[in-house]
């Protein structure tokens, strides 16, 4: 118990980094996903292709390779330079963005065509129709899958320790080797992740009930 209590401040410091990266990355990722979904559904072939290539490239490669490409690969170019945290945030955001894009696209397409027709027949523009009619309904439907992807992205942040980001996992490693108490430390780290993810799903449940499908 003492070992854990002694390590806890360091682990919580790591947790802060994890949450910080997660929050920024998930918000960026959502924006990327939204843009990519709209590009995919836009009535312009080139835009569809841009979105498809992006999504396929991300879904078809491992997270770690994406991380290394961005941190080591892009950073090796003379005119690019960013620190590990930025690289980590970018990777998680882009990765989540690709999956969000598919979720959002499917959500939009799941809304009955009659909704668009009714909205357009009143005289709403296509942008107004998307904003006031389609997206609000689609988001309610997407909420469970969005939660799911967010949880996956949160777990993905633990891989960022590999490029030296002092997140919860990295702090766990430091504490485990400093204390020689790997079992206790990793158990604690696991519990912390579990609690955070549990809170995320509680939040999602709350939102789902709040915006109950009618």
């Amino acid at each position: 118990m003492e070992t854990i209590l002694a390590a806890l401040p360091y682990l919580l410091e790591g947790l802060q980094v994890t949450i910080y990266i997660f929050l920024i990355a998930i918000i960026l990722g959502f924006m990327i996903g939204m843009i990519m979904a709209l590009l995919r559904l836009a009535p312009i072939k080139v835009l569809n292709w841009i979105s498809r290539i992006f999504v396929d490239a991300i879904r078809g490669t491992p997270f770690l390779v994406q991380l290394f490409f961005i941190y080591f690969g892009l950073n090796s170019l003379p005119w690019i330079s960013f620190d590990s945290t930025t690289a980590g945030i970018i990777t998680v955001a882009i990765n989540a963005g690709a999956y969000f894009s598919e979720i959002i696209r499917a959500g939009i397409q799941s809304i009955d065509k009659g909704q668009t027709e009714a909205a357009r027949s009143i005289g709403l523009t296509s942008v107004q129709t998307m904003r006031f009619i389609i997206l609000p309904q689609a988001f309610r439907r997407m909420l469970p899958t969005i939660t799911n992807q967010s949880i996956i992205s949160l777990k993905d942040t633990s891989l960022l320790s590999i490029i030296g980001i002092a997140d919860l996992t990295q702090q766990g490693e430091i504490q485990a080797s400093a204390t020689f108490e790997a079992f206790k430390i990793w158990l604690t780290v696991g519990v912390i992740y579990f609690v955070i993810i549990y809170c995320l799903s509680l939040l999602a449940n709350f939102l789902e009930r709040r915006f109950e499908l009618r």
């Binding site: 027709e117 009714a118 909205a119 009143i122």
Partner: peptide
Amino acid sequence: VRQEVGMVFQQFNLFPH
């Protein structure tokens, strides 16, 4: 033009939200 032309559908198409 559509603002001047109302339409009523077989399946109503009310906005459920």
